[in-house]
Amino acid sequence: EVPPSCTRGCELCSEYNGCLKCMPKLFILLERNDIRQIGVCLASCPVGYFGVRNPDMNKCNKCRIENCEDCFSRNFCTKCKEGLYAHKGRCYPSCPDGFSLTNGTTECTS
Protein backbone atom coordinates (compact mmCIF):
# COMPACT_ATOMS: atom_id res chain seq x y z
CA GLU A 1 0.00 0.00 0.00
CA VAL A 2 1.47 3.30 -1.06
CA PRO A 3 0.59 5.95 1.51
CA PRO A 4 -1.20 8.94 -0.03
CA SER A 5 1.40 11.56 -0.83
CA CYS A 6 0.39 14.84 0.77
CA THR A 7 0.04 17.83 -1.54
CA ARG A 8 2.63 20.59 -1.48
CA GLY A 9 2.06 22.97 1.38
CA CYS A 10 1.36 20.25 3.94
CA GLU A 11 3.10 20.66 7.27
CA LEU A 12 1.83 17.52 9.04
CA CYS A 13 1.13 14.50 6.84
CA SER A 14 -0.59 11.23 7.75
CA GLU A 15 -0.45 7.96 5.85
CA TYR A 16 -4.18 7.44 6.22
CA ASN A 17 -5.67 10.93 6.70
CA GLY A 18 -3.58 12.83 4.16
CA CYS A 19 -2.70 16.29 5.43
CA LEU A 20 -3.48 17.10 9.07
CA LYS A 21 -2.09 20.62 9.10
CA CYS A 22 -1.20 22.98 6.23
CA MET A 23 1.52 25.59 6.03
CA PRO A 24 0.49 29.04 7.30
CA LYS A 25 -1.91 31.00 5.08
CA LEU A 26 -2.99 27.91 3.13
CA PHE A 27 -6.45 26.37 3.45
CA ILE A 28 -7.07 22.72 4.29
CA LEU A 29 -9.76 21.04 2.19
CA LEU A 30 -11.13 17.71 3.41
CA GLU A 31 -11.54 16.04 0.05
CA ARG A 32 -14.03 13.20 -0.18
CA ASN A 33 -13.17 10.57 -2.80
CA ASP A 34 -15.58 7.64 -2.52
CA ILE A 35 -14.87 6.06 0.87
CA ARG A 36 -11.69 8.05 1.48
CA GLN A 37 -11.50 11.53 2.96
CA ILE A 38 -8.06 13.11 3.05
CA GLY A 39 -6.73 16.59 3.79
CA VAL A 40 -5.20 18.66 0.96
CA CYS A 41 -3.69 22.17 1.12
CA LEU A 42 -4.73 24.97 -1.25
CA ALA A 43 -4.01 28.67 -1.78
CA SER A 44 -7.71 29.23 -2.34
CA CYS A 45 -10.71 26.95 -1.93
CA PRO A 46 -12.24 25.31 -5.00
CA VAL A 47 -15.54 26.43 -6.51
CA GLY A 48 -18.40 25.49 -4.23
CA TYR A 49 -16.31 26.07 -1.08
CA PHE A 50 -15.40 29.18 0.86
CA GLY A 51 -12.34 29.75 2.99
CA VAL A 52 -12.61 30.56 6.67
CA ARG A 53 -9.46 31.93 8.28
CA ASN A 54 -8.83 31.40 11.98
CA PRO A 55 -5.72 31.80 14.09
CA ASP A 56 -5.20 28.07 14.43
CA MET A 57 -6.45 26.76 11.08
CA ASN A 58 -7.71 27.99 7.70
CA LYS A 59 -10.36 25.69 6.35
CA CYS A 60 -12.46 25.26 3.21
CA ASN A 61 -16.16 24.90 4.08
CA LYS A 62 -18.80 23.72 1.69
CA CYS A 63 -21.09 26.39 0.31
CA ARG A 64 -24.61 25.38 1.26
CA ILE A 65 -26.71 28.27 0.07
CA GLU A 66 -29.56 27.15 -2.12
CA ASN A 67 -28.94 27.53 -5.87
CA CYS A 68 -25.50 28.97 -5.25
CA GLU A 69 -22.25 27.97 -7.00
CA ASP A 70 -19.75 29.95 -4.98
CA CYS A 71 -19.79 31.70 -1.59
CA PHE A 72 -18.08 34.47 0.30
CA SER A 73 -19.23 32.98 3.61
CA ARG A 74 -21.78 30.61 5.12
CA ASN A 75 -24.64 32.93 4.26
CA PHE A 76 -23.47 35.04 1.32
CA CYS A 77 -23.45 33.77 -2.26
CA THR A 78 -21.10 35.37 -4.80
CA LYS A 79 -22.24 33.38 -7.85
CA CYS A 80 -25.74 31.97 -8.43
CA LYS A 81 -26.51 29.04 -10.67
CA GLU A 82 -27.35 29.68 -14.30
CA GLY A 83 -30.68 31.47 -14.81
CA LEU A 84 -30.96 32.73 -11.21
CA TYR A 85 -30.48 36.23 -9.89
CA ALA A 86 -28.40 37.35 -6.95
CA HIS A 87 -29.78 39.63 -4.29
CA LYS A 88 -28.03 40.36 -1.00
CA GLY A 89 -26.08 37.15 -1.19
CA ARG A 90 -29.03 34.90 -2.03
CA CYS A 91 -30.28 33.43 -5.32
CA TYR A 92 -33.75 33.97 -6.71
CA PRO A 93 -35.64 32.87 -9.87
CA SER A 94 -36.70 36.51 -10.23
CA CYS A 95 -35.85 39.75 -8.47
CA PRO A 96 -37.78 40.43 -5.23
CA ASP A 97 -40.42 43.17 -5.27
CA GLY A 98 -38.96 46.63 -5.52
CA PHE A 99 -35.76 45.40 -7.18
CA SER A 100 -34.79 44.92 -10.81
CA LEU A 101 -31.91 43.61 -12.85
CA THR A 102 -28.86 45.80 -13.21
CA ASN A 103 -28.21 46.14 -16.94
CA GLY A 104 -26.06 43.35 -18.33
CA THR A 105 -25.73 41.54 -15.01
CA THR A 106 -27.61 38.86 -13.08
CA GLU A 107 -27.92 41.03 -10.01
CA CYS A 108 -30.99 42.73 -8.56
CA THR A 109 -30.70 46.29 -7.31
CA SER A 110 -33.25 48.79 -6.04
Binding site: L20, L30, R36, Q37, G39, M57
Partner: peptide
Protein backbone atom coordinates in the same frame (compact mmCIF):
# COMPACT_ATOMS: atom_id res chain seq x y z
CA UNK B 1 -20.86 1.05 3.84
CA UNK B 2 -17.43 1.77 5.25
CA UNK B 3 -16.71 5.52 4.97
CA UNK B 4 -13.60 7.33 6.22
CA UNK B 5 -14.00 10.56 8.18
CA UNK B 6 -10.94 12.76 8.48
CA UNK B 7 -10.53 13.71 12.16
CA UNK B 8 -10.91 17.39 11.23
CA UNK B 9 -14.15 16.75 9.38
Amino acid sequence: RLMQSHPLS
